[in-house]
Nucleic acid binder design. Structure first.
Lengths: 146, 146
DNA sequence: TGATCCGCTTGCATTTTGCAAGAGAATTTT
DNA sequence: AAAATTCTCTTGCAAAATGCAAGCGGATCA
């Protein structure tokens, strides 16, 4: 059984999630798209973790195949390619932020302030809406014709 | 940089989470421990995904090193080893269940009923408490002296 | 006391990853 | 218009991780 097939494992909800998030690079690419406004190949390539270019190409196509990213040529620069997070990707935000809150609790070297976890605990919907609005803003800025 | 070192990546909360959950097998082992009451090596080994024995040994020791599992000799059967989920592992339940809810929405072959997502949406704390109680029950059953 | 269970370890073939170089199209610079 | 540069990938190869089968040592069972 190839890895691509395992990527499509379904039935059990945890296994389905593991098929996408159970890969370090997919996990981090989704962070970059959802939380850091990254859209182009070079955006993702320049993340501090230092992904290899062949792995990046592979993971972007996997995430596109999984319906998490929408690949489009940049509207005003045909040499650039944009990967927009889909609704399916956006909908993982609550769980993703839940994991980040967990990390801030258990990573003694966390860079996130306590206020982040508190804000999410006090009003999770508001936090989600803020990230959703940011995503929409970034996408709109790219897509506006000139 | 070795994989073991990457497992310890910290600072960024998403990266810290990806260091643990960004591995298919760790992800599934935590599911088995937190959601399916599995505790022994053979329990985990017999999961339907079919993990290899060397990989299982490796991941169990990683999860122990990460403070997610507590390795103990079975109190009434010295040939058995139990891996108990720690508080740190239990605390990932909200995010994990959030991912499962997401999976039931987007996996067209999901085995989970809609009622699962609804119950969590209506009263997340109650759902978490139910799983916590199950975990405690399984652990207590193993640990009771005879 | 011999057979079986249990939690691993080892060796080896296959697959995946990481790294460096480069290709081809679009864009910018000269 | 030509040359240099940017950008998204692809390719080749060495190194690392994975999967598979066999086996080992201690505990347990018959």
């Amino acid at each position: 059984m190839t890895k691509a097939q395992k990527f499509d494992w379904h039935g059990c909800p945890t296994r389905y999630a593991a098929g996408i998030f159970g890969d370090k690079w997919c996990f981090l690419l989704l962070r970059d798209a959802l939380l850091h406004g990254k859209r182009t190949y070079s955006d993702f390539y320049n993340s501090p973790e230092g992904i290899s270019t062949n792995i990046l190409a592979d993971r972007l196509s996997r995430l596109e195949a999984a319906g998490m990213l929408d690949r489009q040529i940049h509207p005003r620069k045909a040499s650039k390619v944009c990967y927009f997070p889909t609704r399916k990707a956006r909908d993982i935000l609550p769980a993703l932020i839940g994991m980040m809150v967990w990390s801030t609790k258990y990573d003694e070297h966390t860079e996130a302030p306590d206020s982040f976890a508190e804000a999410f605990k006090n009003d999770p919907d508001k936090t989600i809406e803020w990230y959703e609005a940011e995503i929409s803003r970034v996408d709109a800025e790219i897509l506006q014709a000139r």
